[in-house]
């Protein structure tokens, strides 16, 4: 191995662990949710292996919870798959949004980085990735995703194995950490927002709130993803 290759590997390893360290707000948020999923999966009759397998392969909280309800209710497989995928349609906008902050190159890492692009990983990386050196961005993202993924899978297993026991021993855990997900999204908004994005963001909140009020929870994310940029384009045209 040449000295240049050695240095590159060293920098990649440092960036990877920098990503792992940056993941702590996500880890705090995933801990109680993954425990709850494991517990719910066990109660829904999915075995310990089944619950862990779901978290290993799907890695998407909302659709995993929906899957449990649908399997328990005896819904047809095709309908179950379609509903769960409809819940994940919002992930379509994550890649293009994140790409705006990613430097080109290192295409080989993209298929791996795409697997871990959950709501929380996407949000945190949107606020931080621009500060990472261009050639290390995807490696940093992999580090961030690895820690989030291991927490998700590990605590799903723990939840399905002994969730009731853990939550009865540490009852404050569920309540205190249940706040970490809204806290994470708000903190990211505060860090990312600028003057130009304020009005589009308020329009997005309005659209999302309207769909939530109409009980169309999943569509509300898509509505926000359309309303925000549409408002920005309108304002830009008028200026």
């Amino acid at each position: 191995m040449t000295l240049q290759a050695k240095n590159r590997l060293k920098d990649d390893i440092a960036a990877y662990f920098h990503g792992v360290a940056a993941s702590y707000p996500i880890v705090l948020g995933y801990l109680p949710v993954a425990l709850a999923f494991g517990l719910a999966a066990e109660e829904a009759g999915l075995s310990n292996l089944g619950a862990t397998f779901t978290s290993i392969t799907v890695f998407a909280g909302a659709s995993q919870f929906a899957l449990l309800g649908l399997l328990e209710g005896g819904t047809q497989i095709a309908v179950t798959v379609l509903i769960c995928l409809a819940l994940n349609v919002r992930h379509i906008v994550y890649g293009p949004s994140l790409s705006t902050r990613l430097a080109p190159g290192r295409q080989k890492i993209l298929p791996f980085a795409a697997f871990g692009l959950t709501d929380e990983v996407f949000s945190l990386s949107m606020s931080r990735i621009a500060h990472i050196p261009a050639s290390r961005q995807l490696v940093w993202l992999l580090g961030l995703e690895t820690a989030a993924y291991l927490t998700w899978v590990g605590f799903t297993w723990a939840g399905s194995f002994g969730g009731k026991l853990i939550l009865s021993m540490l009852p404050f855990l569920e309540t205190a950490f249940s706040f970490s997900i809204p806290a994470l999204f708000l903190a990211l908004l505060v860090v990312m927002m600028d003057r130009e994005s304020l009005i589009p963001m308020l329009a997005a909140c309005l659209a999302s709130g309207l769909f939530l009020y109409l009980q169309l929870k999943n569509l509300s994310i898509i509505a926000a993803a359309i309303a925000g940029p549409a408002t920005w384009l309108l304002l830009r045209r008028q200026a």
Binding site: R90, V93, Y94, P96, S97, L98, S99, T100, R101, D119, F122, S123, M126, I181, P182, F185, L186, L188, L189, M192, M193, S197, P200, M201, A203, A204, C205, S208, G209, L212, K217, S220, I221, A223, A224, A225, I226, A227, G228, P229, W232, L233
Partner: peptide, 19 residues
């Protein structure tokens, strides 16, 4: 590029409302 960036911020705002 900027439109997708705004879309990202909008999605985070919606996720915040959801949570």
């Amino acid at each position: 590029n900027r439109a997708f960036e705004i879309a990202g911020i909008s999605v985070i705002a919606a996720l915040f409302l959801h949570s």
